[in-house]
Design a protein around this nucleic acid. Structure first.
Lengths: 230, 230
DNA sequence: TCTTGTTAGATTGTCGACAATCTGATTGTC
DNA sequence: GACAATCAGATTGTCGACAATCTAACAAGA
């Protein structure tokens, strides 16, 4: 019997493509926080009717990166310092849990994937592609969530990730300075390969801590002059 | 200056009402796991066109209680034993975190609300209204999430809650036996009013444990004969 | 009998048009 | 000038119809 592994067919609805397009635009900062999404304009630009566009927007509202006010419009969520702080503190807890669950499941495939994603981050760093750098760094970090074998945890992480990515993108755009070339993930990768789980958990917490501290100070500085929207 | 507290105006779109109707139908078990939702039939029953219905369904898909396959249909999610197990283990972690965050924020208003919700559970129990009993019990438990002052945590909990409610409803429907009349929440409420945070955390973990153990054994017994759908 | 091709019916995905609602500018009144 | 009423334009919400796709039954051929 032939048992080739086929991956599922890609979604081929306009809706799915619109979701992907919009999500990318938001997460990369093309669409800025607070900005209003004009349905007619976007649907014309995408050469699509409003129906699938609106359905796509509903999805992103539930995904937490858009917010909708009936008869007023749909907007990119605003990023407050508190949001970042909330996401951060929850992330600490989830990280600890994810590492704990992943730990006994680690095998060669895990280590290989870890290296692969680490390599992707380094590549993006070399290319000075900050957007891609953020993306790959989050993917590296997300590996423990994919291996924790807990669908609800993974979902939660993915929702968190969206926001984190927005925050980071905003951060980068405003500062417009490349991330340090030194490889901050080296230690993390080594620890995840090692034998001391507690050490890995501790490092994850502290490492993330650093990134967040930067973000927080920046976000607080923004708090004074809120974004005007479109 | 007059500073009356006004609550926000209710959403007055058909979409919002449809979401509420569908959610309720799913969480109470009226719509069973695996069942397909026929758009035309439902839209005719609700006297509504398919557009707002479809948008509502997209929201519930992202909310995690519906699942959609392009050109095939939208279905109520299937409840597996693993789902329950995943939700349970994550819930343990989140509970601990929520209690920790809520603890310093407790005040008279918190205690009053705690009592109010506890009373609601007891009332539902007296009326032998199992559906309402599940609802109120989850609301009692959710108080710590509302007071933890962390929007992301609250969202996560609400998503978890939907599934838990589905699981419980399924459980009740199948067994068709009223929940024990004894008040299992008494100790929890007392501990949340007390001074020993660790004790409260420990109890939450163990108490939930009990409820889940029942659910798990039931769910595993279902694993053999999967629901046929509509 | 098994497999493959065809087709009709049902269902989902998408479209363009209309209705309901909001925004702001304008007008009229004091 | 300040304020309320009115109105036009723009935008969102909803509808009914059509297009694309799937499913299952049936027929044809090996």
């Amino acid at each position: 019997m032939v048992t080739t592994d086929f991956s599922p067919i890609a979604d081929t609805t306009r809706r799915a493509e619109i979701v992907a397009l919009l999500r990318r635009a938001i997460l990369t900062g093309q669409l800025q926080p607070g900005q209003k999404l004009n349905e007619l304009r976007i649907s014309e630009q995408m050469r699509v009717s409003r129906a699938p566009l609106r359905e796509a927007m509903r999805e992103l509202v539930q995904e937490g990166i858009l917010t909708s006010i009936p008869y007023a419009g749909t907007f990119v969520i605003d990023v407050t310092a508190k949001d970042i702080d909330d996401a951060y503190s929850l992330n600490q807890v989830l990280d600890e849990f994810a590492i704990e669950r992943t730990w006994p499941q680690r095998d060669q495939r895990f280590f290989d994937e870890l290296d692969r994603r680490h390599e992707a981050v380094k590549q993006a760093t070399r290319n000075l592609d900050t957007t891609r750098q953020i993306e790959t760094a989050l993917q590296l970090h997300g590996l423990i969530y994919e291996w924790a074998d807990n669908s609800v945890l993974l979902e939660t992480w993915q929702r968190l990730t969206s926001r984190l990515q927005m925050y980071f993108a905003l951060h980068q755009h405003a500062r417009n300075e490349p991330v340090p070339a030194e490889d901050v993930h080296e230690i993390y990768v080594q620890l995840m390969k090692g034998a001391d789980m507690r050490a890995a958990q501790r490092h994850a917490r502290e490492h993330i801590n650093l990134d967040f501290e930067q973000l927080l100070s920046y976000a607080r500085s923004l708090e004074q002059r809120p974004s005007k929207g479109a």
